[in-house]
Design a protein around this nucleic acid. Structure first.
Length: 465
RNA sequence: GGCGGCAUAGCCAAGUGGUAAGGCAGAGGUCUGCAAAACCUCUAUCCCCAGUUCGAAUCUGGGUGCCGCCUCCA
């Protein structure tokens, strides 16, 4: 499969460091607030990549960190008059809840917290000092970017220009204006840890470097995140890690594009952060997941209510295809495929191959989804009650395995309550007696309860909205 | 100023040299008591200009218009 590597700005054939294994790290949230739709994109996109790796038989080790100590968390704690720990705890819990709604494969995700890795961070920093790549300035420890080879290679930045751009914070402590903090000296009343340089806490960039290295090794296969993290965050991770180990830090860097809301950038000044849990009030989060996969991950997206409505309809179409197959599974008889059915199976396998080809091409989920629509159209048109159950079963299995790669179509029908079954029975009776008024009344009543009835030649079918 | 991205039908969105996937919406039809679902049919020459080529939405150059990063915001 090919992946677009930000480091080389090219699509490259993916070859893992160790055959059959993928070690992947995605920058996770700083837990000072609920996650918004922009945070959700890398979570969903790279979760899908991980699912695809699993589908292709790789053994995947997947890490998404929680930054649980940081200025923003401390500020938040002060605002709410509580501790940074409680803030972190609260929003980690909220994240996990949203993650569940987004159907992220949480049970297979390793979630390290920065504060659990203070010791290795201190060791890491000390080592950088030892080799002259970092220096202690009155309790603050900075990384000396001149010690790094090719600083700026990921974001293609030129150091002199960055400095002359004068947008960097000027600090008398720093030897070079571009040097960045590895360890921050504690201010009065701030949470802190003991270190060889006094009380303080780690800087942001060092967290990811240390957690990735501790959990995944010196060189990881894939490092992913939003494209806004390219600089300075990822650039600094590379500088620290590669200076320390002398090895490549990550072999493939993947970055997703940003999301606008109603054609506007989400920003603090506009106060237009759209939280995942706000979206949940109007849409099932599966629709959000489907939306996030409806465009290629490196294409900027725009989030609007209307587009979500469209996505909801599209997803419903796939669910109907699934339901139709489930219905046939129940109605068809087991027998060997005839010649015509063998051809159907070949066609169905072809759609599956199209799906795989699309995913192989830098996770082209938009194209992969199109293959699913085509598959559904094909089975809707060509399979019926007279088909062989073996064929129906195979088609269903393929549809579901593709859906599982994208993390969609996972909702199962619940068993209907006795009371509702009785109503359906009553309506069928009414229809038999051509009492359509009563029949329609019952249908409307059930619709209010979120149950859609469909009269088909084979009898009444129902589904949830 | 530096780096980068995007511009395809009413809307969303694939397609990176051979004569425009898919979805939503819309129109007509089949089926149906009516609906729903499903199926069939219909709806674009790809921002503009020039060039390369037998041939370009796809490559090159120049415009125009959006946008992102360069401020610990995914």
């Amino acid at each position: 499969m090919k992946l677009y590597n930000t480091l080389t700005r090219k699509k490259e054939e993916f070859v893992p460091l160790v055959e059959g294994q993928v070690r992947m790290y995605t920058c996770g949230p700083t837990v000072y607030n609920y996650i918004h739709v922009g945070n959700a994109r890398p979570m969903v996109v790279f979760d899908t990549l991980r699912r695809y790796f699993i589908y292709r038989g790789y053994d995947v080790k997947y890490v998404v960190n929680f930054t649980d100590i940081d200025d923003k968390i401390i500020n938040r704690a002060n605002e709410e008059n509580t501790s940074y720990k409680e803030i972190a705890e609260k929003y980690i819990e909220a994240f996990l809840e949203d993650a569940k709604g987004l159907n992220l494969l949480e049970e297979k995700t390793i979630h390290p917290r920065a504060t659990e890795f203070i010791k290795p961070m201190i060791d890491f920093i000390q080592r950088l000092i030892d080799i002259g790549a970092a220096y202690n300035a009155d309790g603050n420890v900075y990384f000396n970017i001149e010690a790094a080879e090719n600083y700026g290679k990921l974001s293609k930045k030129n150091i002199e220009e960055l400095i002359s751009g004068a947008r960097v914070e000027v600090s008398e402590e720093k030897r070079n204006p571009m040097d960045f903090a590895l360890w921050k000296k504690a201010k009065e009343g701030e949470p802190c840890w003991e270190s060889p340089w006094g009380k303080g806490r780690p800087g942001w960039h060092i967290e990811c470097s240390v957690m990735a290295r501790t959990l995944l090794g010196d060189t990881i296969d894939i490092h992913a995140g939003g494209e806004d993290l390219q600089f300075p965050h990822h650039e600094n991770e590379i500088a620290q890690s590669e200076t320390l180990t002398g090895k490549p830090f990550a072999r493939y860097w993947l970055h997703n594009a940003m999301i606008n809301v109603d054609n506007q950038k989400m920003s603090k000044s506009l106060g237009n952060f759209l939280l995942v849990r706000d979206i949940k009030k109007e849409f099932d989060l599966e629709v959000l997941r489907f939306f996030l996969l409806s465009a290629h991950y490196r294409t900027p997206m725009n989030f609007t209510r209307d587009i979500m409505k469209q996505m909801e309809k599209g997803l419903e179409r796939l669910y109907n295809g699934k339901k139709n197959l489930e219905y046939l599974l129940d109605k068809t008889e087991d027998r060997p495929l005839n010649e015509e059915e063998e051809k159907h199976l070949e066609e169905i396998e072809k759609y599956k191959q199209d799906f795989i080809d699309s995913m192989d091409d830098d996770i082209n989920t938009a194209d992969a989804i199109a293959s699913m629509f085509e598959l559904v159209k094909y089975t809707n048109s060509n399979l019926n009650e007279k088909s062989s159950k073996a064929l129906v079963s195979k088609a269903y299995q393929i549809l579901m395995e593709l859906a599982n790669v994208l993390g969609i179509l996972y909702k199962k029908d619940e068993i209907l309550e006795e009371e509702i079954l009785e109503l359906i029975e009553k309506r069928t009776e009414a229809r038999k007696n051509k009492n359509y008024k009563l029949a329609d009344e019952i249908r409307d009543k059930l619709r209010e309860k979120g149950i859609i009835l469909e009269d088909t030649p084979e009898g009444v079918k129902w589904r949830r909205i």
